[in-house]
Design a protein around this nucleic acid. Structure first.
Lengths: 237, 237
DNA sequence: CCAAAAGTGTTGCTTGTACACCCATGT
DNA sequence: ACATGGGTGTACAAGCAACACTTTTGG
């Protein structure tokens, strides 16, 4: 058939070009104990033994880079349907000493309180506060810097607590999250007004009395899903 | 040596993973006759003969994806040191019928008045107004949509005329550019105030008397380079 | 004279920010 | 009683959008 022949010729045409290993490297962020944390994996062999690396894997024949990133997430945390955002590609020819590897990077946000802790423990992975990261392999420190930028940008456009906080949370907790993400403090009153004005938070009739004397109402994201982008809530500084 | 051995073992480890063709596809935008235009290349063979495609090429062994995009730009327009921004990767396994090809996408902005017109003519490429694009191959229409979004986002943060307009231009021309990018009209007075308040435009003592009766001053970007990000100038609508 | 663009000014609204201030309560 | 966070209100500044108005000049 004519069409099939054309496709065969196209395949021939491509053969003159080199192929490359494609990796996905995920910056998996979580929030715990008032700190923004990053899930890292200890490198157990040379070169770069003792350093830590982002959670990653190689892209297979039959999957897109997004699917590969989702697979990495599932394998390392047991979670699917995760907030995932694509970042820049890192592709300097000599960035990996083992071979020429092009890395697609992703930012993932997960709720530490519901991921599979056993899975993480088995793999040797560890949650590191982003303010005290260890030495990372290759160019992963640059990737993390990039991912943090992306996260801040995302947080300044959307209200992203849903992916990082427990089902119910106080506005104080949400503010602490934002302060951890932006590494700066926000005025409590103004922050409250801003996030409530977005209109996607719902106040519950339950109070948290542990973290304050007076007790603070719990909030949750309105169930009418918030897949849609809400308004910008924090101007980037 | 110990280290070299480790690297050899690493290379062995990688061998179990598949390799992929990596392409770069560039959405090259220019501005001419009051219209935003996109440089496209006519597909001369099956499959998808008669459709048009973005300017692209394959990533070589010894270059980063950014370098590959720069090479494509140089080969097709004769220009180097061009505004280039990386977009999303497109990687559905079956997006290209010839083989599994992962595409890194880029947005490029060039001044139509100084690119190498002969080079473009020889290649058969053609500038299409973005409002009347022809049918494109594979998923290139989706890529273009994505690139336009990126362009709008960029234009709403930076004053990007420098890469698209001639050396000297009137504020009316700059406004027309922005209207072409956002597909909406801006209030002339407010637009003027906004762009001038950024402080990177310099008024010349020459007037353009062709496009208006009264004559409008020419402006240029201040020479003290504007590599630095300026303030946001248009809120995205 | 009139149309059309250049350029300036005014007004009202919205939004962010820095506060002040009262409330509830565990220690 | 007082320190701590919860929650509300106010006052000021900045920025934007809508629009009025004057200037200039080619047709």
């Amino acid at each position: 058939m004519e069409g099939e022949n054309a496709i065969r010729m196209l395949s021939e045409l491509y053969k003159q070009y080199p192929k490359h290993y494609i990796a996905v490297d995920c910056s998996i962020f979580g929030y715990e104990d008032g700190e923004l944390k990053l899930l890292l994996y200890p490198r157990g062999f040379e070169p770069a033994q003792g350093k830590w690396s982002l959670m990653g894997g190689f892209v297979q024949e039959d999957e897109s880079v997004e699917e590969a990133a989702g697979r990495v997430l599932l394998q390392t945390t047991g979670l699917k349907d995760i907030f995932l955002e694509q970042g820049k590609a890192f592709s300097k020819p000599d960035r990996d000493p083992g071979a020429r590897v092009i890395s697609m990077t992703f930012v993932a946000l997960i709720r530490i309180d519901i991921h599979d802790k056993d899975l993480v423990r088995e793999s040797g992975a560890h949650w590191w506060p982003v303010t005290k990261l260890p030495a990372l392999i290759f160019d992963h420190e640059e990737i993390v810097k990039n991912s943090l930028d992306l996260l801040q940008q995302e947080a300044s456009i959307d209200l992203i607590g849903k992916d990082l906080l427990p089902e119910m949370f106080t506005l104080m907790q949400l503010r602490s999250l934002y302060e951890a993400i932006f590494q700066k403090s926000f005025d409590p009153g103004n922050f409250r007004k801003k996030v409530l004005s977005v209109g996607i938070l719902e106040r519950l009739n339950v109070k948290n009395t542990k973290e304050s004397k007076k007790g603070a109402f719990y909030y949750q994201f309105k169930s009418g899903d918030s897949g849609l982008r809400s308004e910008r809530i924090v101007k980037f500084p």
